[in-house]
Simulated scan of single mutants.
Amino acid sequence: MTIQIVVTFDLVPERLAPTLAAFQELARHTRREVGALRFDVFRSEAEEHTVVLVEDWADQEAIDLHMKQEYTRAFLAAVDGAFRTPARVHRLAEIGG
């Protein structure tokens, strides 16, 4: 069974454009990873400063490898201070599964 994760971010309005660009760059690289089955970045239509990641990973090893990538570290450095609140990470479990 794969690992599905949804992460929401509340962006600082003044950092919106560069942070969205950083998310796009991260997604471009991440989608090339063998264990990344899905890595999509969305912007909320209801809350313009909210970004949502929808991820699907082959296994925990793929996630661990992703977090060690240079482009992931570069993304984290680029968005340092760009969020009004800590990211909300939701690791999903199927109901009844």
Rank of each mutant, 00 (worst) to 15 (best):
A78S: 03
A87F: 01
T19Y: 06
H90L: 13
V52F: 05
E55W: 08
T2E: 04
L76D: 14
A27E: 10
A17L: 01
H49K: 10
I5A: 07
D40H: 02
W57T: 00
L20Y: 01
E47I: 09
L16G: 08
D64F: 02
M1A: 04
E25C: 08
F83D: 03
R91S: 02
F42C: 15
I63D: 04
H29K: 14
T8Y: 01
M1I: 05
L26Y: 09
F39N: 00
E33G: 10
V51A: 09
A22I: 07
T19W: 09
E14V: 02
L92P: 05
R28V: 12
T72S: 15
A36P: 04
R88S: 10
A93M: 04
L53K: 09
R28S: 07
F83R: 05
V41T: 11
L92A: 09
D10R: 12
A78Q: 01
G35T: 04
E94F: 04
L16E: 02
D10T: 11
E14S: 11
D56F: 00
E48F: 02
I95W: 00
R32D: 14
K68W: 12
F83I: 05
V89A: 03
T8P: 02
A87C: 11
T2Q: 01
I5S: 08
T19V: 13
I3K: 00
E25P: 10
D56V: 06
D56H: 09
L20T: 07
M67T: 10
E48L: 14
G35C: 11
